[in-house]
């Protein structure tokens, strides 16, 4: 167990993805949306890396880059020491089964014309197993995610949101992955169903020794599941540390703002340090959080900060820390 924890399963180096903004008659590129702008992190086997940020921070783009739904513009992704961004499609297919993703919206991510059995079987396509074995595993998967066998012949629309998300998880686990990317898997669910899903995710991780990349905007969920947390803002990682450390000692002003807005029992006010929702567009060469930051100093107006280790294994991108 201890040895496993030392193995790095995923390493991302300086990943970038820009979307061109096209305008006018000739569809000229007038600028870029820097959805992911130089993101680096690593994940150890059997652990959970939480990526948290508000909407528009580039979390979902990052998820898509990690499983090659999108091609990055720059940077490298190492999966078990193998660089995958430059891997040709045929080579990548061999690795593909080890990587899975669960999407946020269980209503649009399941094919409405497929039965549950077909949906899960499709996830096994890359496995070299015979049909009987596969069918047996479908049963096991259903059991694992807490659905009954009569679900097999039914269609996604016959299920509630929580049950559909269970189907999505079963499909993601069908190829026996080592790494599962969870893109806001519980945020469209009721709190009671969310609690059930979180229990399930923890249970599966322990049972199957899965590694998770857990993307969410709800800090309570991130706190509950993650071993390490990255705080993302407008395509950049602003702070990264172990979960325990970052929640007790948030250093970046943005992280502090974010944490101060968590609602919990016993907290009677909702004060969030942000002044307005609308922000001016930040300048590319400066800190992205500058327009909303309450602690800016002259240095912030001159140079862009970079991620540096200010405490042991606690990285912050801020001139004030």
């Amino acid at each position: 167990m201890l040895e496993n924890a030392q193995i790095t399963i995923l390493e991302v180096k300086d990943l970038k993805k820009f979307f061109p903004l096209k305008r006018g008659l000739f569809y000229k590129t007038v600028g870029y949306i820097k959805a992911v702008d130089g993101v680096s992190f690593s994940l150890r086997q059997g652990k959970t890396l939480g990526i948290v940020g508000e909407s528009g921070s580039g979390k979902s783009t990052l998820a898509k880059l990690l499983i090659k739904i999108l091609e990055p513009d720059a940077g490298e992704i190492f999966f078990r020491d193998k660089e995958i961004t430059s891997l040709p499609e045929r080579e990548f297919r061999k690795l593909r089964k080890s990587l899975s993703i669960v999407f946020q919206d269980p209503f649009s991510s399941l094919d409405p014309r497929f039965t549950v059995e077909k949906i899960i079987l499709e996830g096994m396509e890359l496995l070299k197993e015979n049909k009987a074995e596969k069918r047996k595993r479908v049963f096991r998967l259903l059991e694992m995610v807490g659905l009954s066998y009569d679900a097999l012949e039914r269609f996604p629309h016959e299920f509630s949101g929580g049950q559909r998300q269970r189907i999505s998880i079963a499909r993601a686990l069908a190829s026996e992955p080592e790494l599962v990317i969870l893109d806001e898997p519980v945020s469209s669910l009721d709190l009671s169903i969310q609690a059930q899903m979180i229990n399930l995710l923890i249970e599966l991780q322990e049972k199957l020794k899965l590694s998770y990349i857990f993307i969410a905007h709800d800090l309570r969920v991130i706190r509950h599941l993650s071993d390490e947390v990255c705080v993302m803002y407008r395509g950049k990682i602003l702070e990264r540390a172990f979960s325990e450390e970052i929640f007790q000692n948030p250093l970046h002003p943005y992280t502090q703002t974010l944490f101060s807005s968590i609602p919990f029992i016993g907290k009677k006010t909702f004060i969030s340090q942000t002044v307005t929702v609308e922000e001016e567009k930040p300048e590319d060469r400066l800190c992205r959080f500058l327009p909303r930051c309450g602690k800016k100093k002259t240095l912030c107006e001159e140079n862009e900060p970079f991620l540096k280790e200010v405490l042991p294994h606690h990285f912050v991108s801020c001139w004030q820390c």
Binding site: S192, A195, I262, F264
Partner: peptide, 20 residues
């Protein structure tokens, strides 16, 4: 109340409501 995630108790099993 049991479904609410508590910040000081990560990775614990939640006493969720069974079913829906």
């Amino acid at each position: 109340f049991a479904c609410l995630l508590e910040l000081n108790r990560p990775k614990t099993f939640l006493n969720a409501i069974p079913g829906q």
